[in-house]
């Protein structure tokens, strides 16, 4: 009798443990199976700092003149990274006509590099910050101009 009781208790315990384990697994499976929803664009824009929000801008004659006046000193007249300072810099200026690198950078990263300087985006300190020289609209249009030069978009 005692033995039967012990066997029954053992069976009940085993079943309970199995039920609990299975339940955990399901729950776990449920968690794993939960789709990783990519954040929608609006959410991303909400999360971005105000200054880095993308604005639809056009490349104008003013953009090209600004590039020639300031950027061409290092990046060259045609943006090939061969400006008059280029050979004397520790790190060569970016060639804006090469898509290979620029398509790996987002527009926000290019905007940040122009506005806050190379160091701000983990690049060379040779690139100064233009935040007190150029307004944000001009910087956005320069980003678009660089996209024109490289004929590329961010991947």
């Amino acid at each position: 009798m005692k033995r039967n009781c012990k066997n029954l208790l053992a069976r009940i315990t085993t079943l309970a443990v199995l039920a609990w384990l299975t339940g955990c697994g399901q729950s776990h499976e449920k968690q794993a199976a939960a789709p990783l929803k990519p954040p929608i664009r609006q959410e991303l824009e909400k999360a971005r700092p105000q200054a880095l929000q993308l604005k639809p801008v056009q490349v104008t004659e003013n953009t090209r003149q600004t590039y020639q006046w300031y950027c061409a000193q290092c990046h060259g007249i045609e943006g090939k990274g061969n400006g008059i300072n280029a050979k004397l810099l520790t790190v060569p200026p970016r060639n804006h006509t090469k898509a290979e690198y620029l398509e790996t950078r987002t527009d926000e990263q290019l905007f940040g590099a122009i506005k806050f300087g190379g160091l701000s985006v983990g690049r060379a300190p040779c690139m100064p910050a233009w935040e007190h020289t150029l307004d944000e609209g001009t910087i956005h249009s320069l980003v678009q101009y660089i996209r024109e030069l490289c004929q590329c978009e961010a991947l």
Binding site: Q73, C74, N85, L89, G117, G118, L119, P125, C126, M127, P128, A129
Partner: peptide, 10 residues
């Protein structure tokens, strides 16, 4: 002079 303000570039 060289790194924070990039003066050496020009």
């Amino acid at each position: 002079f060289e790194r924070t303000f990039s003066c050496i570039s020009c």
